[in-house]
Amino acid sequence: MAHHILDMPVTEVQARALRVGDTVTLEQTLFGIRDATLIAMFDRGRTTRFDLKGHAVVHTAPNVRKVDPRPGNSSGYEPLCIGTTTSMRMERFTRPLMEREGVRIIIGKGGMGQGTLDAFRDVGGAYLAVVGGAAALETTWVEAIEEVDMDDLHPESLWKFRIKGFGPLLVTMDSHGGSLHADVNAAALARRDAILAKLGASGPARA
């Protein structure tokens, strides 16, 4: 159960060193991405001018305010509230994000599935769980919105955040086949029949 402070971007070796149960704090740079961004990139062939190699992406679409662009903040936006959305909808994009764009770390909430776990194993990556719904707190870890790409998809643009002390986040999926989400689900399913029996509601799950 180690704590890692990662100056982004990271190498494959650093990503593979992360184990379920470890905690991580990220520094420097973090990219924000979500449904529409990923659909545009991988279903509609759009590309980004950002170099995501070795970087972390967080599943988000922020609340922002328009401001005048200035040095160090050319995006023209300042962050108001930045939080994390449910990751599972974006399950099929993990592998292409890693293989085509070089992403190493996915940050989200609720966990992801077997396809993501396989991609972590094959390419070298990890999933870090944010406490979903704790966006006011998460916003205090974001210093600025440095740049934005594909802003025609606003708010589902591709965001480049400058971060400071982003975490601690819990590693819940790793490159060694570990998934706390799968473990908790298996445990709940194992308890199901006894709980239903107590309710007088035994029976098979709906097909």
Partner: peptide
């Protein structure tokens, strides 16, 4: 901080 609790409006 007079901020939103969650980013999801």
């Amino acid at each position: 901080t007079n901020n939103l609790l969650c980013q999801d409006t």
